[in-house]
Design a protein around this nucleic acid. Sequence first.
DNA 1: CGTTGAGTTGAGCTCTTTCAATAGGAGTGG
DNA 2: CCACTCCTATTGAAAGAGCTCAACTCAACG
Lengths: 214, 214
Amino acid sequence: MTDAAYLQLQAMGRYARATAGEAVLADGDQNQIVFVARGATKLVAHASGGREQVVAFHFEGDLVSVPARGAHSYTLCALQDCELIAFAAAEFLGLARSEPGLLNEVLERVLASLARSREKSIALGRKTAQERVASFLVSMAGRIGMPQEGGCLLHLPMSRRDMADSLGLTIETISRQLTELREAGLIETSGRSVVHLCDNASLQARAGHLSSAA
Amino acid sequence: MTDAAYLQLQAMGRYARATAGEAVLADGDQNQIVFVARGATKLVAHASGGREQVVAFHFEGDLVSVPARGAHSYTLCALQDCELIAFAAAEFLGLARSEPGLLNEVLERVLASLARSREKSIALGRKTAQERVASFLVSMAGRIGMPQEGGCLLHLPMSRRDMADSLGLTIETISRQLTELREAGLIETSGRSVVHLCDNASLQARAGHLSSAA
DNA sequence: CGTTGAGTTGAGCTCTTTCAATAGGAGTGG
DNA sequence: CCACTCCTATTGAAAGAGCTCAACTCAACG
């Protein structure tokens, strides 16, 4: 990227800090692009009747596309203390047009987001509660898990409610499924947010993933 | 776009025809980008146990990103007779890098796909059967509906099974909900695939959409 | 060390699914 | 053009997965 472009980017980006639990960006009238410099966030969609759906989680280094308000409204919320850089999507893409490298990078990240969103659709549309929870753990392990001998260690920054709102379940069901997975020896838990995945292969099987041979 | 780029694009694109019901593109080992020149398609994800989730529908002029096989496999299927142009995503993006206009166009379409995918997540995660069907109709009306005085006319190219697999329901539930909407006077149906939306406002209310005042 | 909110566990209920039977549409061949 | 057939869609009754409501337990923090 050229220095000039970099400066422009800095000029149009709004830097923001947010403390855990805080709404960073309420739904506006235009699309936003947000870069998560530090921390973790959730993108929450609001439907009628106060129902909420967590549409995506984001971690350090992730890029988030926050849609303008339409049939539903969206809010970006901090799960932990965060540092964020927000851009109006139109401006950002206008600049990026003259910076193919940047544009390409953004496109690849957006494609990855799309792929994750589709995986979520599969879970929400066709999987049982247990499969959803297992899928969630496997997915999180891939994004923020710390590999250990004989497993993977997870520090989940989100609450049971966040998981429930992400998986289309209730907190009670999340709790019950975690208990079942624990009793099956697939995971170990410690406190509210630490999960140790003991048997990734079995977990993937319970996640309803296609076996690679299929 | 330059002529040279256009020629390159033509050279790397694979043209394909498909008849209704046919699988156009089984899951490969690399991402694909497909342009729907004519017809309509569905992108189907396969989970264990033969379960299928329709992840997206596409119509004439749409661009589809078909993911490589991962935890689930994806198949692009023709709903009607189609003409398609398929690219290996890596090649396509390589060329697009030198064509910012093209890249930008692709990015905007992918962002639109992401937004639709998220709307689907809301439906699958937090909406009742009736709300899902109403949302589906409203969404389809926006994409392929023909406005009429006092409503909107829809020719749905997909079967009840496709709708069910898209909305995370069964064909029986789809049928029952359509009946309810018909009896409530919100829609009229004719044959298998024609639906007339009589009252868009009420339909949006039943879709669980946020009222614009909220 | 107590308080408070988050998480877990249990029992009954609801919405959607499942299973089964009927009706309807589209295409075919007489 | 109509009758026949097959597959899709509709409708009904029973079963099940997850939800709701309620009580209890635990962990973090002052």
